[in-house]
């Protein structure tokens, strides 16, 4: 039988190149990937952080597509992973006469962050076209001395032209586990499904097409007072916007949610929060990269 779906995988192994010249440790990587994945040129910032934009060359996902994404951060590495364009999920329900119910396209991500390493995973938004079916799963293992920043921005339908999700479904599962020999020590679990039911529910999205999450898990011994200051600063950011934003304190970190109609607004807010996180961790301020989250030439 001819395969009609596309299966691509991308494996990235980041490590600290101690032999590099200069005072800063530089994070470099080895990779293996198959189409539609393609890696753009990576750069390093002044702290040696590796900035890598991943490109999905297919231009979108159709039912049955499967992407497998595996990332390892060896000890003492810093990485900013992003994507070069928004991910598009095309309609699947009612498209094929053989399979009118449609098929989910899926992305499975496995991320491992070893000691004293910091990963920022800030992809561009995912747009679920009318009747698109998408299922993403993230499993993240993180050591006690490491941190993880994650953002996820979803738009249901090309809402500016009046399109909605219709019979489409966006499903996302994020599980973050702190290493523990005795049992799985969960830091954060999120199982979200956005469909028409949640789009129209008043206690769901209430007809707002853009939903975003920003999850930050810090080192286990991260100062509680620093974290509380950070949360207070983030609440100030909320006051400056008309969008619906909220923040919840996690055992080690926090979760921010955005609900609104503009993904640009969401990016702006998330960028401001990201800047605050960098500052409180004693890291350098994020700079314009030409890709997300700064592809808009706006004044942050």
């Amino acid at each position: 039988m001819i395969k009609t779906s596309w299966e691509g995988n991308c494996f990235l192994n980041f490590f600290n190149n101690k032999t590099s010249l200069g005072n800063v440790n530089k994070t470099i990587f080895k990779s293996k990937s198959t189409s539609p994945y393609k890696l753009l040129k990576s750069t390093n910032d002044q702290e040696g952080r590796c900035i890598l934009p991943v490109l999905h060359t297919a231009g979108g996902l159709v039912g049955g597509d499967l992407l497998v994404f595996e990332v390892n951060l060896e000890k003492n590495s810093k990485v900013l992973l992003t994507t070069s364009s928004a991910q598009k999920v095309y309609g699947s329900v009612g498209i094929s006469k053989i399979n009118p119910k449609g098929t989910f396209s899926r992305q499975k991500s496995l991320i491992k962050i070893l000691d004293n390493s910091h990963l920022e995973y800030l992809p561009q938004e995912t747009i679920i076209f009318a009747n698109g079916l998408y299922d993403q799963k993230f499993k993240v293992y993180i050591s006690e001395t490491s941190s993880f920043l994650f953002t996820d921005l979803i738009r249901l339908g090309r809402s500016s032209s009046g399109e909605s999700i219709e019979s489409g479904v966006f499903r996302s599962k994020l599980e973050i586990i702190r290493n523990n020999d005795l049992y799985d020590d969960w830091e954060y679990v999120d199982q979200i499904e956005l469909s028409k039911a949640s789009y129209v529910a008043k206690s769901g999205m209430d007809y707002m097409p853009v939903f975003g999450s920003l999850i930050w898990i810090c080192e286990k011994d991260f100062s509680k007072s620093k974290r509380n200051n950070l949360v207070a600063n983030i609440k100030k950011i909320f006051e400056e916007t008309d969008n619906n934003l909220s923040i919840g304190i996690l055992e080690n970190g926090f979760s921010v949610r955005f609900l609104g109609s503009s993904s640009q607004d969401a990016r702006k807010c998330f960028f401001c929060i990201w800047k605050q996180i960098r500052s409180v961790c004693g890291f350098c301020e994020p700079k314009y990269q030409g890709v997300w989250p700064l592809q808009d030439s706006m004044n942050y």
Binding site: K202, S203, G204, L245, S246, I247
Partner: peptide, 17 residues
């Protein structure tokens, strides 16, 4: 467990707020 997702995000945000 893996089949149960939630979509009541507005309420979840109200809980955070």
């Amino acid at each position: 467990i893996d089949d149960i997702y939630f979509g009541n995000v507005g309420l979840a945000m109200a809980q955070q707020n």
